[in-house]
């Protein structure tokens, strides 16, 4: 059977007992510093998350309303395409000699009836 801790070296127990009765005490200054640390950590944890101090302008609200940068990209693309079409419209489309190409009345009798038929 194994001997207990106290049985194997009895002389040491006197010293261990003395050590237990003469422990190093924390100074008042240390206790105060630890208290201050505790308060600081608590204060930091209790502080609400910082909110943006920047005021929201009308343009930024509109920007967010439209969907942010993805929507803005689409709008910009559509605008550029519109400008390009306006500048470089194919000449043949508005050419007076090619009216027949797009002014074809496929049902002239119907148009007549609607315009001047009996009501």
């Amino acid at each position: 059977m194994a001997m207990s801790d106290k049985d194997d070296m009895p002389g040491l127990e006197v010293f261990f007992d003395a050590a237990r009765r003469h422990a190093a005490e924390p100074s008042a200054a240390l206790m105060a510093r630890i208290d201050e640390d505790a308060q600081a950590v608590q204060a930091l944890a209790q502080r609400p998350a910082p909110q943006s101090t920047r005021r929201s302008t009308l343009s930024s609200q509109l920007y967010r309303l439209l969907g942010g940068w993805p929507a803005m990209t689409g709008l910009a693309t559509a605008a550029v395409a519109g400008v390009w079409l306006g500048i470089s419209l194919p000449e043949g489309i508005l050419d007076g000699t090619s009216d027949a190409a797009y002014l074809v009345d496929v049902a002239p009798e119907l148009a007549f009836d609607l315009a001047g038929g009996d009501f």
């Binding site: 422990a23 005490e25 924390p26 240390l30 206790m31 505790a38 608590q42």
Partner: peptide
């Protein structure tokens, strides 16, 4: 955020920690 808990823990644990660190 309980300040009393902080003081209680400080009073209870600091002497123990200090004694151990010194040893």
């Amino acid at each position: 955020g309980n300040a009393s808990a902080a003081r209680a823990l400080t009073a209870r644990l600091t002497p123990r920690v200090m004694g151990h660190a010194y040893r």
